[in-house]
Design a protein around this nucleic acid. Structure first.
Length: 841
RNA sequence: GCUCACGUGGCGGAAUUGGUAGACGCGUACGGCUCAGGACCGUAUGGGGCAACCCGUGGAGGUUCGAGUCCUCUCGUGAGCACCA
C-alpha cells in the first residue's frame, strides 16, 4: 500500500532525469590548464573526499555525509566563480576482496570491479557533482605504476640531516647506501598476525589485535621493507602548525609522533669496559638514580650477567619472550624483573648502582635502558617498592617537604644534587646537560615514539614492489619496467609461514637467471598516500602528475573524511608529500590545507550501526522512498557535520515535507492529477518584509556554507519557505533566487523547478546571489529591559535612539517602574540596539 | 591510569564579542479539510502556577550589571594513548 502511495512530489521522475543531463553534458567536468574551456581568470578550489574502499556491502549512510558536505561546497564554489576540482575514486586494494577470493576463488580484480560499479551507481543516484572523467582506481596498473614509481623515489633517496630534507641517494657520502635509503630492508621485531598471515604496521595494531578482524598479533623478528618516516618526525610535527585542521587531530598526530626532549646519559659498567646509554627526559633527577634497568632483549644482558645470576636471568627472559604484546601490557599492573649481578656507575656521584632487567623497559624506545629514579617516576617508584630499594627525593615540589615530594612528577627545585641544587627544574635540566656534555657523559637528545613504517605485507592483493633480489642483495627495477603487475594465481591463500603468496608463482618470481622478484606487496595505505595528486592529472602516462596541473590544483583546499584516519592515512600521505616535495616533484610540502572530520552516524537506537544490531540504514531504501534530495538534505540537517549523531527516519520525513512544500510553492496539481506551474507565481515586486527575509536568507545560507554549518543554512531556507507559503502572489524573482540557494543542497528539485519557471540558462551556471546589507537594516529594534539581569519588558525603539534616550525610555516604562519603585537605581547598563539593564539595591 | 572533546525541552539540535535560552525540524495536543488519512493546512507546545510570577542549559562554587558561553572543582558520555623513561 505504502509503495503505491503517490510521492509528495515527483522526485522519482526528475531526479534520474537531471542525473542524466549532468552526465550527458559533462556539466561538472573541470578542465585542466591549457585544455578546452579552461578559464584561467577564475581562482581554483580543490575539494576532496576521502575516497572509499569499495566493499561488497555497498554504500552506508556514513559515506554520503561527508560527500554531501563537499558536494554542497563544490556546487557553491562553482556558482561563486571558481574552477572546482571535485573528484572521486576507489581505494581498492585490500583484504576483503582477497579474503573473498580465498573463499570463492573469484579473482579480486572481478570482485573489485563489481563493487566499484555498485558504489559508483549509488553515488550517482545521490546526484554528486563529481568530475567522473577523473575517476581513479588504485588497483589499475595505470595507477599503481606510479605508486611503484614513488616507491622507487623513496628507495633512491636518503634523508640528509644537514639540509633536513630527502635527497637523491647519489648525494649520500657514506659507505653503505642501503643503510641510508628511505625505503630499506631490516630484520626487526614486527607485528605478525598469524590469522591474516601478514605483518602489520604499528598503526594497524590496536590493543594487541589487528585493526582488521581483531585477530591476535605477536611480535616476531622478520626481514621487512621499512620506510624511514622517523626522519621526518620533526617536520611532521612542526608543519602541522600552518594547517587549518581540527586541533584534536593535530594533537592526535603529535601524540602519535610522541616527541620527548631530554638527554642520553652514559653509565660506565663496573669491572667491564662497557658503557650503557640511557635516555631520560629528566636528567635533573640523575642524583636520584639508584638502579638501572635494561629491556630484557637488551644486547648487553648476556655479556654483563654474573655467573650466579644466569639461570634466573635466562628464566626471566624466557618468560617475557613467550608473552604476546597483549599479555605483556595486560600484566602491566605488577612490576617484575631480575637483577643481573652487574653494576653501573652513576656519572654524577660515582655510586655503584645495580643493573636489572625488567619488561617495563622496552627495547623499541630510547636506548632500551633507563636509569631508575624511584623518587620521581611512578613506575620506578613502584618497582623500587616491590624490590625494597631506597627512595631518594632529588626534586622538591613547591610547598612540600622533600619526603612529600616523592612521586611528584612536575617542576620543582633540585635538592640533594650538588651540581644543580636550588635550581628550578627547567634550569636544572639545562645545567646538568651542559655538565654531562662537558664531561663526556652524555648529551641533549630528542626521542620519538614514532617508529619507521613497516611497509611490506605478505598478501596477494596489493602493489608488488619494483625490486629484484640478486646474490642476497636488493636492487631497483628500472622505471621503464613499471608497472610490475602481480601474477595470476589460483590460490590466494597466505602461506602461513610468512612467505608471501606471490612466491607461489615460480614463473613470475624468476626475473632472470640470477635475479628474482621481491614477493611482498605494499600495504593498503600505499595507494591513498598520493591519490590526491593523481586526481590533478589522472590520465597522464608520462608522469605521476603533470607539473602544470599539480601546480595549478594543489594543495587540497578542503578535505573531508572520518577521524579513523587521523594517524594512519593522514600521517603517511603527509610523509610521502614531503619526500616528493624535497625531491622537487611537487610544489607544496603539505597536501591538505583544511581538514574537516565528519561525525559518525549512529543507528536509530543511538548505537553504532552494525549488522549484529540490525540498525543499519541503507541509502538505497531512503532514496527510493524519499528521493536523493531529501536524503542529502537530511544528512546535512541532522546536526553539525563534525558531530556524532543518530539517524532518524522521522527526520527524513521532515525534510521531505519541506521539499514538498518548496515544490507546491511553485507547482499545483490540476484536475487530471498532473503537476503544472502554479498561477500564484507571478512577476510581482517583493514587499519590504519579503525582501528582508530573502536577503537574510541569502546572507545566512552564504555564511553557513562557508563555515560548513549546513544544518542552520537549511533552517533558514525553511524559514524562508514558511514565510512565502502563506502569500497570495508568489514573487517569481524571489523564487528564482531561492532556488539558486537551494541548488547545492537539493540539486534535482531546484533544477526541475528552475526549468519549470522558464528561467534562462542552467541553474548550475547561475552566479551566486548577493545580499544587500541595506535591506537587512531595521529601522526599529526591540530593546529588552532587564532589572537586575532579569527580563521584565521589551520595547520598540528607533534604531537611531541614543543610549540616553533608551535609558530614559526604560526608566519611564510603566512596567519597569513597578519593579524599581522604592529602590535606588544604582546603575543602568545600555547595550546599543539590544538591551537595558537597570541595577537597583 | 593519562590526554582531548562534549553534556541545552520528550527527541535531533539553535543561540557574533558574555547581552531576549530553546531558532529550525521531529514528536505531542487541539482544530480545519476530507468517504478516509500514518496526506495536507492552521494553532499551541521547557517545567510549575488560575494568575501576577517563580524555576530552568549535568552538579557545586566563583568572576560580572548580566554566564549555556569565562574560571575552579566535581559527575557523566565519547574518542585517542596506554609501562614511551
Amino acid at each position: 500500500m505504502s509503495s503505491e502511495r503517490r510521492k509528495p512530489y515527483p522526485f522519482d521522475q526528475f531526479e534520474p532525469k537531471w542525473q542524466r543531463v549532468w552526465e550527458d553534458r559533462q556539466v561538472f567536468h573541470a578542465p585542466n590548464p591549457g585544455e578546452k574551456n579552461f578559464d584561467p581568470a577564475k581562482p581554483k578550489f580543490y575539494v576532496l573526499d576521502m575516497f572509499p574502499y569499495p566493499s561488497g556491502a555497498g554504500l552506508h549512510v556514513g559515506h554520503p555525509e561527508g560527500y554531501t558536505a563537499t558536494d554542497i561546497v563544490a556546487r557553491y564554489k562553482r556558482m561563486r566563480g571558481f574552477n572546482v576540482l571535485h573528484p572521486m575514486g576507489w581505494d581498492a586494494f585490500g583484504l576483503p576482496a582477497e579474503q573473498y577470493a580465498i573463499k570463492t576463488g573469484q579473482h579480486p580484480k572481478l570482485t573489485t570491479r563489481e563493487n566499484i560499479a555498485k558504489f559508483k551507481s549509488q553515488l550517482q543516484a545521490i546526484g554528486f557533482s563529481y568530475d567522473w572523467q577523473r575517476e581513479i582506481n588504485t588497483t589499475d596498473p595505470r595507477y599503481f605504476k606510479w605508486t611503484q614509481w614513488i616507491f622507487l623515489q623513496l628507495y633512491n633517496s636518503w634523508f640528509n640531516p644537514e639540509t633536513n630534507k630527502a635527497e637523491p641517494i647519489a648525494t649520500y657520502r657514506g659507505q653503505d647506501r642501503d643503510s641510508a635509503r628511505l625505503a630499506y630492508v631490516a630484520e626487526v621485531p614486527v607485528n605478525w598476525c598469524p590469522e591474516l598471515g601478514t605483518v602489520l604496521a604499528n598503526e594497524e595494531v590496536i590493543d594487541g589485535k589487528s585493526e582488521i578482524g581483531g585477530h591476535p598479533v605477536v611480535k616476531r623478528p622478520m626481514r621487512q621493507w621499512m620506510l624511514r618516516i622517523t626522519k621526518f618526525a620533526e617536520r611532521l610535527i612542526d608543519e602541522l602548525e600552518e594547517l587549518d585542521w581540527p586541533e584534536g587531530i593535530k594533537l592526535l598526530q603529535r601524540n602519535w609522533i610522541g616527541k620527548s626532549e631530554g638527554a642520553e646519559i652514559d653509565f660506565k659498567i663496573d669491572n667491564y669496559d662497557e658503557t650503557i646509554r640511557v635516555f631520560t627526559t629528566r636528567p635533573d633527577t640523575l642524583y636520584g638514580a639508584n638502579y638501572m634497568v635494561l629491556a630484557p632483549e637488551h644486547p648487553l644482558v648476556d655479556r654483563l650477567t654474573a655467573q650466579d645470576r644466569q639461570s634466573e636471568v635466562a628464566q626471566y627472559r624466557a618468560k617475557i619472550a613467550s608473552k604476546s604484546d597483549l599479555e605483556r601490557t595486560d600484566l602491566a599492573k605488577e612490576k617484575t624483573g631480575a637483577p643481573i649481578g652487574a653494576f653501573a656507575i652513576n656519572p654524577v656521584n660515582k655510586e655503584k648502582i645495580p643493573i636489572w632487567i625488567a619488561d617495563y623497559v622496552l627495547m623499541g624506545y630510547g636506548t632500551g635502558a633507563i636509569m631508575g629514579v624511584p623518587g620521581h617516576d611512578e613506575r620506578d617508584l613502584e618497582f623500587a617498592r616491590k624490590f625494597n630499594m631506597s627512595i631518594l627525593p632529588v626534586v622538591q615540589a613547591p610547598g612540600k617537604t622533600p619526603e612529600e615530594s616523592i612521586g611528584f612528577l612536575d617542576d620543582g627545585i633540585a635538592i640533594n644534587s650538588p651540581i644543580i641544587d636550588g635550581l628550578p627544574t627547567p634550569e636544572a635540566k639545562k645545567k646538568i646537560i651542559e655538565w654531562l656534555e662537558e664531561h663526556g657523559h652524555g648529551k641533549r637528545e630528542i626521542n620519538y615514539k614514532l617508529r619507521d613504517w613497516l611497509f611490506s605485507r605478505q598478501r596477494y592483493w596489493g602493489e608488488p614492489f619494483p625490486i629484484l633480489w640478486e646474490d642476497g642483495k636488493h636492487r631497483a627495477l628500472d622505471e621503464k619496467e613499471l608497472p610490475v603487475v602481480p601474477p595470476a594465481l589460483d590460490d590466494f591463500k597466505p602461506t602461513g609461514t610468512g612467505e608471501p603468496p606471490l612466491a607461489k608463482s615460480k614463473d613470475w618470481i624468476r626475473y632472470s637467471k640470477t635475479a628474482t622478484r621481491e614477493t611482498n606487496v605494499m600495504p593498503q595505505w600505499a595507494g591513498s598516500c598520493w591519490y590526491y595528486l593523481r586526481f590533478c592529472d589522472p590520465q597522464n602516462n608520462k608522469r605521476f602528475v603533470g607539473e602544470e596541473p599539480e601546480k595549478y590544483w594543489m594543495n587540497v583546499d578542503l578535505y573531508v573524511g572520518g577521524t579513523e584516519h587521523a594517524v594512519l592515512h593522514l600521517l603517511y600521505a603527509r610523509f610521502w608529500q614531503k619526500v616528493l616535495f624535497d625531491l622537487g616533484y611537487v610544489s607544496t610540502s603539505e597536501p591538505f590545507q583544511r581538514l574537516v572530520n565528519q561525525g559518525i552516524i549512529l543507528g536509530e537506537d543511538g548505537q553504532k550501526m552494525s549488522k549484529s544490531r540490525g540498525n543499519i540504514v541503507n541509502p538505497d531504501d531512503v532514496i527510493a522512498q524519499y528521493g536523493a534530495d531529501a536524503f542529502r538534505l537530511y544528512e546535512m540537517f541532522m546536526g553539525p557535520l563534525e558531530q556524532m549523531k543518530p539517524w532518524s527516519m522521522r527526520g527524513v520525513e521532515g525534510v521531505s515535507r519541506f521539499l514538498a512544500r518548496v515544490w507546491r510553492l511553485i507547482m499545483k496539481e490540476n484536475q487530471a492529477g498532473e503537476w503544472e506551474l502554479s498561477s500564484a507565481v507571478q512577476d510581482v515586486d517583493l514587499s519590504k518584509n519579503q525582501r528582508k527575509i530573502l536577503h537574510a536568507t541569502i546572507k545566512k545560507v552564504t555564511d553557513d556554507i562557508e563555515t560548513l554549518s549546513f544544518n542552520t543554512a537549511i533552517s533558514q531556507m525553511m524559514i524562508f519557505v514558511n514565510a512565502f507559503t502563506t502569500v497570495e502572489a508568489i514573487p517569481l524573482s524571489a523564487m528564482r533566487t531561492f532556488l539558486i540557494l537551494l541548488n547545492p543542497f537539493a540539486p534535482h528539485i531546484s533544477s526541475e523547478l528552475w526549468e519549470n519557471l522558464k528561467s534562462k540558462g542552467d541553474i548550475t551556471a547561475q552566479p551566486w546571489p548577493l545580499y544587500d546589507e541595506q535591506v537587512l537594516l531595521e529601522d526599529e529594534v526591540e530593546i529588552v529591559v532587564q532589572v537586575n539581569g532579569k527580563l521584565r519588558d521589551r520595547m520598540k525603539m528607533s534604531i537611531l535612539a541614543s543610549d540616553e534616550e533608551v535609558k530614559t525610555a526604560a526608566l519611564g516604562n510603566a512596567k519597569i517602574q513597578q519593579f524599581i519603585a522604592g529602590k535606588t537605581v544604582r546603575k543602568v547598563v545600555v547595550v546599543p540596539k539590544k538591551l537595558v539593564n537597570i541595577v537597583t539595591d
